[in-house]
Amino acid sequence: MTLEIYPNIYLLEIPLPNNPLRALNSYIVKSYEKNLIIDTGFNRIECEKALMKGLKDLNISFGSTYLFVTHLHSDHSGLAGALNRMGIKIYTGKTDGNMVNQMGTEKYWRRFDEFKMLFDLEKDNISFNDHPGYKYSPKKPIEFTPLNEGDILTIGNYNFEVVFIPGHTPGHLGLYEREHKLFFCGDHILDSITPNISFWGFDEDILGIYFNSLNKVYNYDIDFVFPSHRNIIKNHKKRIDELLDHHSKRLDEIKGIIKNDKLSVRDIASKMHWDLKYDNWETFPSPQKWFASGEAMSHLEHLVYTGEVEKSMENGILYYKSKY
């Protein structure tokens, strides 16, 4: 279904079959001269059919249309290659754009074997083969035009300013329309669910970076936040406060779990609370174990950065324990 949510701005729900996210909010900004698509859905036939139908319903001409990819995840970038081959120009950030192209290689995914050992996920005998990023990302490199903080995309009466909001991914971008007080935020701020903040490497505190990005957007003058999943947000400050509180409680939960025990990432994640329909860790599907362990890891590394938790390595497995 394609719904006009603001003058010449349309919301197109792209189904994400068999995925807890259920659907992607793809946005289409239409004008007489050119059009803008924001995010695409997975690289799978169900998503492509829904996107193509929505574009057809709006009489979108590919020759005068651009695609803006907020970040690298395959539910956002999956069809970028297909649209690129149809003649649509692709905009995204340099960091995440490069990673999208790496996701089509086995080398990129082999690092998940390293994470599997580090996180202690060997216990669960999982692999990356059923990870949605592996299955539904673009399979060939895409030609993209990199965008930077402060760049402007003008579509009709709208002037969209590029905003760098890393955290959910290392190079996540948003689009801010100051005059109309609109913000397209990708997965930076979500309502009714919380963005997954995962682990991307030891060289930076990605959770701390995410907090900084939330605070950066907090004082923006915004009437409507258009997120990539679930509900349009009308009070972004309230929702940011809720997200910060959520992560504060998550950090306290983890400190409680490792207060007296030195545990692996996998064992910590298995003891954390998750708002999922599964009864226990053993019944989590493989992708959910990856996501849960990655989120546990980002919080653990943040606690290491703040000096509240210490880590050690034994037989290739990371262990964490509270200092207090």
Rank of each mutant, 00 (worst) to 15 (best):
H246V: 08
S228M: 07
C185V: 04
Y210G: 00
D221K: 02
G174T: 03
R266Y: 15
V309Q: 00
H168W: 10
L175G: 03
P166R: 07
T65R: 08
I142T: 08
H168I: 12
L182T: 12
L79V: 03
I142G: 08
I14V: 12
N25S: 10
H188Y: 03
E106C: 03
G97H: 06
N315P: 07
P138V: 04
N98V: 10
P146N: 07
Y6A: 03
E48A: 10
Y158D: 06
E179S: 13
F119Y: 15
I126S: 14
L244A: 09
I126A: 11
F226C: 01
L303Y: 00
K116V: 13
M1E: 04
H302R: 03
D223H: 07
K116C: 15
N25R: 07
M103A: 10
Y158M: 04
T145S: 08
G156A: 02
S137Q: 08
N18A: 14
N19Y: 12
K181Y: 09
K107I: 11
F226E: 00
Y10V: 07
K56Q: 08
P132I: 09
T95S: 02
W281S: 13
L263P: 10
Y158F: 13
M103K: 06
S127I: 12
V304W: 03
T95E: 06
H299K: 03
G133Q: 05
N231R: 05
I258L: 11
H273D: 06
E4F: 02
W281Q: 10
N59C: 05
T169P: 08
I254S: 00
T65L: 09
S228P: 07
V29L: 15
T154L: 01
K34T: 11
E106S: 07
D124R: 14
G93P: 01
